[in-house]
């Protein structure tokens, strides 16, 4: 069968709603787009450990400390799981990690913002995990089997993280004046960058039509962003926090919240590496990687020795 015929069969399969599995034929662009998206997703989990890891040692109660460690641990687990799922596309974890450390691969912009107070641990869980859930619920219906299954599993945990985050935010919002100010400040800082998590507006997202046709993505960036906003505004209202957008208005006809202008210049600047924490995040990841090199080499060497001993004994 030539590639044209294979492509027709591939697209027919996707149209029928069947999943593409690792051993199935797929167009090179499908494979490349998936590697880009999935590895980016894995990197985001790993870099995402840093802003929250930043508050583990200062968490205000033992219960909160445990909740936060468990969350960051989950993120490491998600990263591991996503790297494995991406490996089914024929790329190794080492190569993906190198791409991240060399600055060739992206990760979510949101982690290039600093976590400044304990309230950020609430608002990150609520907004950032909330946005991730909206995105991942869509990706759970992705046409690529391993990605779709990874998303189902990860989403269940993200839901828990979001609840935990909202509960932290709500506790602060209903607490003392100082606590309320702390959480409002975090909302003010994280709202707009959270909206940017869904990526550029549809008209500036050249990959979207093909990604949708091949059902890698099932909804556009703008649709997902709107869904997140519609879900989140009532949650903020319930605990009397103000979303920092004077243009927010419920359109009674459509049932959707209309919102103000996103600062896309900021978005592209942060992508280009000019965000508040881009340098720190990459420095931290590189340091962990290079400081840990001797450990990885030792583990490999030990495994080799064990293998040799084992075969000598047989």
């Amino acid at each position: 069968m030539d590639d044209d015929a294979k492509l027709i069969e591939f697209e027919a399969k996707i149209k029928r709603g069947e999943k593409i599995e690792p051993k199935d034929w797929m167009p090179e662009r499908y494979r490349k787009q998936l590697i880009r998206m999935m590895s980016q997703h894995a990197h985001s989990e790993i870099v995402g450990m840093l802003p929250e890891g930043n508050w583990i040692t200062r968490a205000p109660t033992l219960r909160r400390k445990m909740g936060l460690i468990a969350k960051v641990q989950d993120e490491a687990g998600h990263g591991l799981y996503l790297y494995s799922a991406t490996e089914t596309l024929g790329i190794g974890r080492d190569e993906m990690v190198d791409q991240l450390l060399e600055g060739k691969a992206k990760y979510s912009n949101i982690f290039n913002y600093p976590s400044l107070t304990w309230a950020d641990m609430g608002v990150i869980g609520w907004f950032v995990d909330g946005a991730a859930i909206v995105n991942q619920t869509m990706l759970a219906r992705s046409s690529y089997g391993p990605y779709s299954r990874a998303m189902l599993r990860i989403c269940a945990e993200e839901n828990f993280h979001k609840k935990q985050g909202y509960e932290i935010a709500a506790t602060l919002a209903l607490g003392t004046q100082a606590q309320k100010e702390m959480v409002q400040n975090a909302v003010d800082r994280y709202w707009w960058p959270s909206l940017m998590m869904f990526g550029p507006s549809d008209k500036d997202s050249p990959n979207t039509p093909l990604l949708m046709k091949w059902k890698i993505k099932r909804k556009s960036n703008d649709d997902l962003r709107q869904r997140f906003i519609d879900l989140t505004i009532p949650q903020a209202q319930r605990i009397d926090l103000t979303i920092p957008d004077p243009d927010l208005k419920l359109n009674k006809k459509t049932g959707h919240w209309e919102f103000g202008k996103i600062n896309w210049d900021e978005f592209y600047e942060v992508i280009r590496g000019n965000g508040p924490c881009n340098k720190e995040r990459m420095t931290a990841r590189r340091k962990a990687h290079f400081d840990g090199e001797w450990v990885r080499i030792a583990a490999e060497e030990y495994a080799k020795k064990r293998k040799t001993n084992h075969s000598n004994n047989n």
Binding site: I46, I56, I69, A288, G292
Partner: peptide, 25 residues
């Protein structure tokens, strides 16, 4: 818990966090 996000391999980020969690529990 200070290792969280800074371990030599991802598997150890998970393991050390897990042990930290047990200890604090």
């Amino acid at each position: 818990s200070e290792w969280c996000g800074h371990a030599p391999i991802l598997e150890e980020d998970i393991a050390l966090a897990n042990i930290a969690l047990d200890c604090i529990g």
